[in-house]
Amino acid sequence: MNKAFNMEVFLAGVLTGSHATRHRHLRQAKMIQAEIADRWQQETPWAWQRKHVAWFLEHHLGRRSEATRYYYILTMRLLARRLEKPWKFN
């Protein structure tokens, strides 16, 4: 039996800021994970490619406000830092 992936433990080394900021990043990272797992069947961030995260930005956040997109991009930067990937998002 596989254990569920724990996003909080995964991001623990790169999360900084206030409690509310850390909570927002965790909530958004879990949302990104759930959408990518649903669409691409990639359960953990270790299996993600840049196209998966770019798809989330384009299709899931396409109609959201610029402010919402900005906060998700900040979370995606944390994920990229944790994965040690050179991903850049606009």
Rank of each mutant, 00 (worst) to 15 (best):
S18A: 13
R77F: 04
F89A: 05
T21F: 09
K88Q: 11
L11R: 04
R39W: 05
T21E: 15
K51W: 08
E66C: 03
T75H: 09
H60C: 08
K3G: 13
M31Y: 04
Y72L: 08
F56G: 03
L79G: 00
R69T: 11
A47E: 12
R64G: 06
W40D: 08
A4R: 14
N6G: 04
L78E: 06
L57D: 07
E66D: 13
A12D: 15
E8G: 14
S65D: 04
V14T: 11
H59L: 09
T68C: 07
A54G: 01
A67M: 07
E43F: 05
R27H: 08
R81C: 04
T44V: 09
L74F: 10
R50Q: 11
L83K: 01
S65W: 03
Q42C: 04
K3N: 15
Q33C: 05
F5D: 10
K85T: 01
E66W: 03
T44R: 06
W87H: 02
M31A: 11
M7D: 05
H23K: 10
A4G: 14
K88M: 07
Q28L: 10
R50T: 01
L79R: 00
Y70D: 15
Y72E: 07
E84I: 00
H19V: 12
W40G: 00
K3W: 13
K51F: 13
K85L: 02
H23P: 00
N2W: 10
I32H: 01
E84R: 08
L15D: 08
I73W: 05
M76G: 04
Q41C: 07
R39F: 06
M7N: 07
A37Y: 04
N90F: 04
A47Q: 13
D38T: 05
N90W: 05
L11Y: 06
E8I: 14
W87K: 02
G62C: 05
Q41P: 02
R81M: 05
T68E: 05
Q49L: 02
L57Y: 04
L57H: 03
Q42I: 01
E66I: 09
A54I: 07
L15E: 10
Y70F: 13
T75W: 09
Y70K: 15
W48K: 00
N6D: 15
N90K: 05
F89L: 12
A20M: 10
P86K: 00
T16N: 14
Q28K: 08
K30Y: 02
L11N: 02
L74G: 12
A67N: 12
R82Q: 14
W48L: 00
E43M: 04
A12G: 06
K30N: 14
L26W: 09
A4C: 13
H25K: 10
L26S: 09
L79S: 01
Y71R: 10
R82K: 11
R24P: 01
S65N: 06
T16S: 15
L78H: 07
E8M: 14
L26M: 12
A47V: 03
